[in-house]
């Protein structure tokens, strides 16, 4: 019976992901193409929002993945702290830039959507604000990885930052909800669409979300492979320096 931890072996990880990667990539392209074409061209315009509503097919999946990427980094960080598998730390490192891009897409599409709907590019709505804060957390995490030379030290420090940061991100989320209720009146700008999305929009949206999930998995696999090889190269160079 193969244990899950076998994939903590860098070579095994690369071998396995090499086999899986083409399939995941194809799935990502298929789902995204189907979902986006279906969503953009074969759904009716919303009676209130017109065709602008269709940005939902980029906005919602990217926002979902922005949060999921952070959760994945948190899990990988915990695995590194507890079991000290290098692949785990490198996977967390690999996921961070993907998460940032997802956050930026969510923020940008949100602004583009918000402009015609609310007449403004930006409002300090709780959700928008939470995503902005999430973006700052990502930046700090990546900056810390880049700043530290020793890979193991960097893995340890970023893991602890990720764990502590997750607690504070959650706190910020509630703080922002509280703060906004204190400043603005209620939910006139609510972004909560799950309740008012009709089935015609719902199914292509599901396909798009699946596409983003596969895209995320493919990118993280690819980037983790790159990080493993880069790490190995640095290790070999360090050995050579010591020999010399």
């Amino acid at each position: 019976m193969a244990s899950l931890w076998e994939y903590a072996n860098p070579k095994k990880f690369i071998d396995t992901t090499d086999k899986v990667l083409p399939w995941v990539s194809v799935l990502a392209v298929l789902c995204l193409a189907t979902g986006l074409i279906w969503g953009f061209f074969f759904t009716p315009d919303d009676f209130r929002q017109g065709s602008t509503v269709k940005i939902i097919y980029l906005h919602v999946p990217s926002a979902l993945m922005a949060i999921n990427a952070w959760i994945m980094m948190l899990l990988a960080s915990l695995i590194w702290v507890v079991r000290r598998h290098h692949v785990s730390a490198l996977a967390a490192r690999a996921a961070a830039p993907v998460g940032v891009v997802m956050t930026v897409i969510a923020l940008a599409t949100g602004a583009i959507w918000g402009q015609p709907m609310w007449g403004t590019w930006w409002a300090w709505d709780p959700r928008l604000t939470s995503f902005l804060i999430l973006f700052l957390f990502y930046l700090g995490y990546i900056a810390l990885w880049e700043a530290i030379e020793n890979d193991d030290t960097a893995a340890d420090l970023t893991s602890i930052l990720c764990i502590v940061g997750s607690v504070f991100a959650l706190l910020s989320r509630y703080a922002v909800l509280f703060w906004n209720q204190g400043l603005h009146q209620g939910a006139s700008l609510s972004l909560d669409k799950e309740e008012n999305v009709a089935d015609v929009f719902y199914f292509p949206l599901l396909v798009c979300i699946a596409g983003f999930v596969f895209l995320f998995i493919a990118l993280v696999f690819l980037r983790t492979q790159t990080e493993i090889r880069a790490r190995r190269m640095r290790a070999l160079l360090a050995r050579d320096r010591m020999e010399a």
């Binding site: 804060i133 900056a143 810390l144 940061g165 504070f168 706190l171 910020s172």
Partner: peptide, 11 residues
């Protein structure tokens, strides 16, 4: 690193 962690306290 610290500024995002300050958000809840500040709010």
């Amino acid at each position: 690193l610290v500024l995002p962690l300050y958000v809840p306290t500040l709010i």
